[in-house]
Amino acid sequence: MYEFRYHRPETLEDAAKLFSECGDPLFLAGGQTTLPVMKQRLASPSDLIDLGRIPELRGISLSGDTLTIGAMTCHEDVARSADAKSAIPALAGLAGDIGDPAVRSRGTLGGSIANNDPAADYTAALVALGASVHTPSRVIAAEDFFTGMFETALEEGEMIVKVAFPAPRSAAYVKFPNPASRYATVGVFVAGTREGVRVAVTGAGPCVFRAGDIEAALEGDFSADALRGVSVSPDGLNSDLHASAEYRANLIGVMTRRAVARAS
């Protein structure tokens, strides 16, 4: 780790102001990616701006059909939240299966989606549920938020305040973990929403994506049987030590069938 300056502002305004004043700052959420990367000297911010003391970034609330989660809410809090469990049990389950207890107690929703790791779990939930990402100045639809590998629609210095999730009729998330890292080799979030069936895939490609063919097959018949004959192409999927594109394509099919079976 190189030397850096550490700040802990208590308001969004102070955080934004600090960011604009520092040379090469980074926001620090749970630090579950930022800190290891800094330790390996792969990132060297001049300043870390810790968002942990800003009250409006925390908390979980349910209003009507909308579950709202503050950006600095840790995974463990989402997993244990009565509101999350009642409104979107698949989301609470997803949060409870990220990493390990230490990661879940430090890692945050906002940090995860701002990082947009191709194998992160939350990204699939946001896209499948049609969530919206709130920043101090605007609201971004999840599908527009994740723009590429480790890339998002956030502007330089723009913070995530909260994410609003409309509760679906039914939903499930099933992932196949990487044997070493336990990140999602492939994770599939299926949701029956007001706008129809939405299926988002994480881990398989450079960025979370919706599986249009699968959604179409499920639209009229939300059952695992409806997926017979739907083949997934390996084109454009990731290929690495643990999983080739062909294997990932297979896993998308298998994880989707299992998610549909669980959701229906």
Binding site: N178, P179, A180, S181, L241, H242
Partner: peptide, 24 residues
């Protein structure tokens, strides 16, 4: 079932150089 040290056959780089890739 899990563990293997893998070197890239061309470059000789250690591919499984961390617990993110070396499965314990």
């Amino acid at each position: 079932l899990l563990e293997e040290i893998i070197y890239d056959p061309e470059s000789g780089q250690l591919v499984t150089g961390s617990l993110m890739d070396y499965a314990l």
